[in-house]
Design a protein around this nucleic acid. Structure first.
Lengths: 275, 275
DNA sequence: TTGACAAATGACTCGTTGGTCATTATTATA
DNA sequence: TATAATAATGACCAACGAGTCATTTGTCAA
């Protein structure tokens, strides 16, 4: 598929030069295709960057969420950091774009997307904190969440922009220690429940039933494998009119969770059904 | 002075839209001047952004450095955070630019400047850590430094991009607690002495004698006040040929330290003479 | 071999940008 | 007031970028 080629090559250039500084001309040259061919795959340059963000952020969010939901508590924090940095490292070109283009103003949709994913990640971190420390951190959980985000940011810059050899194990151990320290001994919160209300505000976007339905129908078309396809169809019915028991829904979700094209929809459905 | 007007107005626009997305046209319109007038004050758009960075970063670096050198240990950490966030808050337009344009690739000189100041700030933080905890954190000081940088970044985003009411006192208290916790109980460092060597590398730039001399001569021209002027002239001689005692040098530096035009040169000289 | 259809091309348009410079307005000086 | 010097103007230029579309190339069934 041309689309994939363009995304791959554009990713390299964006990471190196930034989005604005990379022209469509350059991208097409780097792909060895014509300018027209580019516009057969993407309606605009903006659509390309949105596609890139969607692609990687969906993947990342889903990965992290799965870990937070399914890892035993003893390994949870370590695995979380490990997976995070492993992912950043593996998709370092994309991570660089994220860092560079952080909250740039050039495109409305871009910002909305970024905020949306940012919010998702914050929620995942919060639910991890909940699992790890529970009531213990009631007063300080938002601060803790911000610190964890800060660690993710600060430490990833180290290996993204200086190419130092990366000892993922040591890094994760080190951050686990720091996080536990902060969780267990912090008593002066800065971010109160009030403050977080001011920050949060909207957060609708993808969550709505209609949008999930839309994506669901699209996936049903795409998928060939009978089990996955039927699971999707059943889930669609359940979405329209809840009749199945939670156990069955959970099973159906399990059926699709490892299909490469279903990761995202499975994440959305899981959230929707509050499993 | 036109230059100041342009810098003020451009700052607003850059903070709102980013550097690349703001045209010289827009800036001149916002100032109520013609395009030609802009180019009487700045040779190029790039020169403008460099001037802005220099202006604010010199100010910030000098402020923080003064605090770290001169505050009693009991208040040091608190004052450091307070001053940092106070400065970010006061110059929030500039802080926004820093966040947005973080390591953008558009201009070589820009990046060099940013790295230079980043390095300066890292050194200031390190010397603060040294004063606060000394030997205690020998193994973990670089990690601690990165965590402090992380706090500065993460928490400033809160009030820069959501305009929440800001309780500077609480914020500083809260970060003091976190920092002390990490300093006193961390045992698993990630950033070793080796790693920091890989990252550091060059770090020359402004420090050289010739460059200091150049700025010094320029300042001697500018300054009217007799005491400050003579102090500068004596310091210039001392720079060429060291003859004065450390006490005298320190006194001369003290003479100029509060002159609004001498903050930066005084910082550079202080570093050079290792006072 | 032909012809219908889709895929791919790249010269082109049109808007915008950073930057220049001949000209005009303003001020200072004699 | 006349003249020189300086400040300010904005029409203009070359360069470049996103996006378009008439045309060419490739494919495959008949």
């Amino acid at each position: 598929m041309k689309k994939q080629l363009i995304m791959d090559k554009a990713l390299e250039l964006f990471a190196k030069q930034g989005f604005e500084a990379t022209s469509v001309q350059q991208i097409t040259e780097h792909c060895g295709i014509s300018k027209g061919a580019f516009y057969l795959s993407f309606k605009s340059k903006d659509e390309l960057i949105i596609a890139l963000i969607d692609h990687f952020m969906m993947q990342f969010t889903t990965e992290i969420d799965y870990i937070v939901r399914n890892t035993e508590i003893e390994k949870l924090l370590y695995d979380f950091y490990y997976a995070t940095f492993h992912s950043f490292h593996q998709h370092s070109d994309f991570a660089k774009i994220l860092m560079k283009e952080q909250s740039q103003t050039f495109n409305e949709e871009f910002i909305v997307k970024m905020h949306y994913f940012d919010r998702l990640i914050e929620n995942i971190i919060l639910s991890m904190i909940e699992r790890l420390y529970g009531e213990e951190v009631k007063q300080t959980k938002y601060d803790l969440m911000y610190c964890i985000k800060g660690f993710m940011n600060t430490y990833s810059q180290l290996f993204l922009f200086y190419n130092v050899p990366l000892d993922l194990n040591l890094l994760s151990e080190s951050l686990v220690e720091k996080t536990n320290l902060l969780a267990r001994h912090t008593h002066v919160p800065f971010i109160s429940e009030d403050l977080i209300q001011v920050i949060k505000q909207p957060m609708c976007e993808e969550g709505s039933k209609e949008q999930i339905l839309e994506i669901l129908e699209q996936k049903i078309e795409e998928i060939e494998e009978p089990i996955e396809k039927e699971s999707l169809i059943l889930l669609k019915q359940q979405l329209r009119e809840p009749t199945l028991s939670p156990a069955i829904v959970k099973g159906l979700l399990e059926n699709i969770r490892n299909h490469p094209l279903c990761k995202w929809i499975s994440y959305l459905l899981q959230n929707y059904f509050e499993v």
